[in-house]
Design a protein around this nucleic acid. Structure first.
Lengths: 203, 203
DNA sequence: TCTTAAATACCGACCAGTTGGTATAATTTT
DNA sequence: AAAATTATACCAACTGGTCGGTATTTAAGA
């Protein structure tokens, strides 16, 4: 096997093992040795690819963020009008609930580190700002075309992002008491239906 | 000083120091020795009052939960009708945002541990179930008295709790980009206004 | 009230095990 | 041979927790 290829695979395996182990035990509680064992790699290889344990964490965060952006790409959900687009986006909640369970611990780990480390904080918080801006813009557009009722767009954006975040977190944490995969999109769509004055625009 | 009194104070100081240190550094990253130093107490005293480090964490969690329940007591906000009561409860968001900043790291710590430890999970998740049930009941009442529009009460409760949770989390994490102390209650009230068909009932 | 014994609350040195990280050697590809 | 990559052995620092001992308060007996 070519050298570069092999090295990339080693790096990838370390990242994979780290994600699994961090998720199940937490950052501090997992040792570098444990990650190496899980990845089938020795410490030498580890510290060749990552200068410190924390650097590995940051690499993992970057991976997470790029995956998230790719996953939440809202362009796929554009419909005839804004209200319909938002309706379609409610499906993201269901998908997030089914696929996101394994990622929840890492997600919380990122937030926890974000509360302390400014670098992690900046990277963690940035997507939310972007989403709020995106939804504010979308809401304004919906108002102009008449599919959404009159309101402060930035306030509406804050509400929608908060609602989605709260639904996801509760659903991922408490996956037993409620059928969240149905309830979360339903709740989101219900709130949307309140925002759309004309029932005809929201199927 | 009476023996019992002194012991209680020692215990209290350990809890206080632990909360501060856990909040600023995380559970795993803070050593028992560090807590002891901050509390002005030796290890002997520590392990006299708490059998393990984890037991201390659980004691802290219990404290947190009882404080939370006391703080969120919704009976204080009852108004003429349900819509008005909900409106008044939006102030809790502002209070939570101003006072909750110091508690956010511990809150995240609890959630993180809850994702792994069943005992912590049960205790952490229980309040949300209770709040959802409470709001579902309240919404039903509001429908019956005509101050809230027709909808599935449990769905509405899920939406309201999720919205509040998302607002609080975003506001506590990203306390710079938005004036959350105004925006959070405003967003909540805006959604409420959509649920209340009669503008007269919502001041 | 004074003495004494026991219970309580606390001290701090110490332990075995683990940690992230290093130094260096061995192996492979170019 | 040179460079890049992985393996092994090792370390100083630190971890949660233990343990024998101590000081002080409490309770009982005389």
């Amino acid at each position: 096997m070519p050298k570069q290829e092999r090295a990339e695979e080693t790096r990838r395996r370390i990242l994979e093992a780290a994600q699994e182990t961090f998720a199940s035990q937490g950052y501090q509680a997992t040792s570098v040795a444990e990650i190496c064992q899980r990845a089938g790699v020795t410490k030498g290889a580890f510290f060749y690819h990552f200068p410190t344990k924390h650097a590995l964490f940051l690499a993992l965060l970057e991976d997470w963020l790029s995956q998230l952006d790719q996953y939440l790409n809202p362009d796929r959900y554009l419909g005839n009008n804004v209200a319909q687009s938002l309706y379609a986006m409610a499906d993201l909640l269901k998908a997030g609930l089914t696929q996101g369970r394994d990622y929840l611990p890492m997600f919380l780990e990122f937030w926890l580190q974000a509360a302390r480390d400014p670098v992690v904080w900046q990277a963690t918080i940035e997507p939310y700002r972007r989403y709020r801006a995106f939804f504010a813009n979308l809401y304004l557009q919906g108002m102009n075309e008449g599919s959404l009722c009159t309101a402060d767009p930035s306030l509406a954006a804050v509400a929608m992002v908060s609602l989605a975040l709260g639904l996801l977190l509760q659903g991922l944490m408490d996956h037993e008491s409620v059928n969240w995969e149905e309830a979360a999109p339903a709740a989101f769509r219900w709130v949307l239906s309140l925002m759309a004055p004309d029932p005809a625009t929201t199927p």
